[in-house]
Design a protein around this nucleic acid. Structure first.
Lengths: 205, 205
DNA sequence: TGTACATCAGTGAACGCGCGTTCACTGATGTAC
DNA sequence: TGTACATCAGTGAACGCGCGTTCACTGATGTAC
């Protein structure tokens, strides 16, 4: 990234990217406005031309994160193609892939203390991501008789919680994996067992 | 808490408790040595008679947290009584109860950036808690034929991840629950479906 | 029981630091004519 | 195409603040005799 002259050109986005790097490296605590400015190659006062403060910068990072997350989940779901089941499993893999490839976004979204309720935009993107999981759960559970079907929001919550739990507990361990499985194996097996419990895939498979 | 004279009497533990309060109220970021000292009614220099620094104080909180957590899980498991299944479910409830009743500990353990690998004591207590889940999973899956049984560590990891995910996503939401279920309902139903998937409880129940 | 003394657990002042933020400024860019 | 000017996006110096930490100190406690 070549610094040219007095004007940066795209400082707003450069700050977002600096924040992603800092957050991914040192956690949400390790991020400061001053350091983000430094990483972006700009004076400490410059960020305030674009963001009212620290909170607002993190919120922007989270917002972009939710947007990207929703896009990736939607792409993975592909409107339930080729099969509803395959699409459902692709969503799970996309969840882990997002956490792995975009740790800065993931941390800003889930571990920085910002909550989707803070702004309408944030709430909207978070909801968009959530709706993919809900749709995937809905399509699958439509195969079940109504009286043996858990509420869709519960089904979706189970999948989200299992995915998030796996990311938090098993996808970030530094001193050797705590468990002899990859997060992907854990999630795939866990979801498989869960779906079998619902009667959505064969017990003897 | 009556302050009497020059000597505090039990400052070390008072600091731990101040930390619990601060962390629970304002997150791990909102905790400082200076404020912990203030809450404990002592000068800012006093904590250094008991802890080398901020990290060490948080680590002590987490250590006590893991200890308590392990105790509660062990108590809930009760050596698999009255039945292995009931004991297993009691462990799940105890997990949520711990997160709810001891938020300061929970946050220090899972959200403060300290990791069990940091000290032998920490690793030991974390392992003790983990072993309860593993034992519970083992006792249950012993009922399955060996070839239809997932590795015990995977079974335990699924339960831990689901529990942790539920705590993180659904047990801490301030602006109205994101989902129309309590964490307890979510976990109980989720574990039920999972166990059915393993063939450990009846499909038609 | 009384006294002397060592030890311990506090105090309070001070430090250096980096952070968040403000402010008057200035260089660069875009636009009207 | 050239010039004047408004606007924009930076700078750099400065601020107040609270934090983490150190240090020489002192009041309280425990113990030996």
């Amino acid at each position: 990234m070549v610094k040219r002259g007095y004007h940066h050109g795209n400082l707003r986005q450069a700050l977002v990217e600096a924040t992603l790097t800092l957050i991914a490296e040192k956690g949400p605590t390790g991020f400061t406005m001053a350091e983000a400015a430094k990483v972006a190659g700009v004076s400490a006062a410059a960020p305030y031309r674009h963001f009212a403060g620290r909170e607002e910068l993190i919120a922007e990072v989270a917002l972009q994160g939710y947007g990207l997350f929703a896009d990736l989940l939607e792409f993975a779901y592909a409107d339930g193609r080729p099969t509803v089941l395959a699409a459902f499993e692709a969503v799970g893999r996309a969840y882990l892939a997002f956490a792995r490839k975009h740790p800065g976004h993931y941390i800003a979204m889930f571990e920085s203390g910002i909550t989707p309720g803070q702004s309408a935009e944030l709430a909207h993107e978070a909801e968009r991501a959530n709706r993919v999981v809900i749709r995937a759960a809905e399509a699958l559970s439509a195969r079940l008789p109504a009286d043996k079907r858990p509420p869709t929001s519960m089904f979706a919550a189970h999948v989200a919680a299992l995915s998030h739990g796996i990311v938090e507990l098993y996808a970030r361990s530094k001193p050797g994996a705590r468990v002899p499985f990859t997060p992907e194996e854990l999630l795939e097996a866990g979801v498989g067992i869960y779906l079998r419990g619902l009667g959505l895939i064969e017990a003897d498979k």
